[in-house]
């Protein structure tokens, strides 16, 4: 019981780190970036290459995954995404779907279509018994790291000047611009950080899921649910919804394996019926 809760929390936190960038970019620019999962996949494959091919430590691959995907995100944002902010949602969906297809095929070309397995460093292998629950070191590591990141993000958002500018831009872009805030610069930075976090999440997820080229498509629905249930105006919303989803998904697959796959969709449907604006979302004019 506790073990499942624990695994669920680890999974949920991971989902949050994966999806938070998407939530902010969506809230900020009203841009639907389905290709967010492609950045996560990039992070995952960076880990695979560094650990399995180059023999570097798993710990080094985490910051590398963050930095490389953040750089990738920043360059794509400046060259391609920036042209699509004023287009309609259909165009954005098609564009990001196109990016997904390209990234899937490209990864297939360079890395092969089969699943990649990353071996954990010995320090993170093994389990510990605590209050009758069996806790994997790696899951503990993920929980601690993701919690620190979440706290860090929240602090940046609430305490720093950049954070208040960001929040102002999310709340009302036009007024923020009028106040002299350089929204497009903030957006570029946020996009880069969001992509970087997705990359880091992908790297962290690789030992769990064994990454393969279809990753962006497989997890697209999870990201969408996290965002749609959590709303895009805060990061607490997606945080709670990611936790809920993680715990429900893990518990569902453990207790009722026959219908476990349907649990998250059931949540999705129920939320939509009773709270169409998202479980934690505010009702805004948007």
């Amino acid at each position: 019981m506790l073990t499942i809760l624990f695994d669920g929390i680890a999974y949920g936190l991971l989902l949050f780190i994966l999806a938070v960038g998407l939530s902010i970019t969506l809230g900020l620019m009203n841009f639907i970036n389905l290709a967010h999962g492609a950045f996560a996949m990039a992070g995952g494959y960076i880990t695979v290459v560094m650990v399995n091919r180059l023999g570097l430590s798993f710990f080094w691959s985490l910051p590398a995954a963050f930095i490389v995907t953040a750089a990738l995100g920043a360059s794509l944002e400046r060259t391609l995404y920036v042209r699509l902010y004023d287009k309609n949602h259909l165009d954005q969906v098609l564009f990001s779907l196109g990016l997904i297809f390209m990234s899937v095929a490209a990864v297939d070309y360079f890395m092969g279509a089969n699943q990649q397995i990353v071996n954990l460093p010995p320090a993170l292998d093994g389990r510990l018994e605590f209050l009758g629950a069996s806790i994997g070191y790696y899951r503990l590591f993920v929980i601690i790291l993701c919690s620190l990141l979440t706290i860090g993000l929240q602090l940046v958002l609430t305490k720093t000047r950049f954070g208040s500018r960001l929040r102002a831009s999310v709340d009302d872009q036009r007024v923020a611009r009028g106040l002299g805030i350089d929204v497009s610069k903030i957006f570029a930075l946020t996009f880069a950080i969001g992509s970087g976090l997705a990359g880091l999440g992908g790297a962290l997820a690789t030992p769990f899921f064994n990454i393969d080229p279809t990753f962006p498509l497989k997890y697209m629905i999870y990201f969408l649910i996290v965002i749609a249930v959590g709303g895009t105006t805060t990061i607490t919303g997606p945080f709670l919804s990611a936790l809920l989803l993680g715990v429900a998904d893990v518990a569902g697959k453990y207790y009722v394996p026959a219908i476990g796959g349907f649990i998250i969709y059931t949540i999705m449907v129920l939320v939509l019926i009773f709270r169409p604006q998202g479980l934690f979302g505010r009702v805004t004019g948007r």
Binding site: F101, M102, V104, D108, Y109
Partner: peptide, 20 residues
């Protein structure tokens, strides 16, 4: 055949950017 997705994606991106 296995990289068909790449061309498809490329066509989509170009279509959205240039040929609405």
């Amino acid at each position: 055949p296995e990289y068909w997705g790449f061309w498809l994606g490329l066509a989509l991106v170009l279509l959205v950017l240039f040929a609405r």
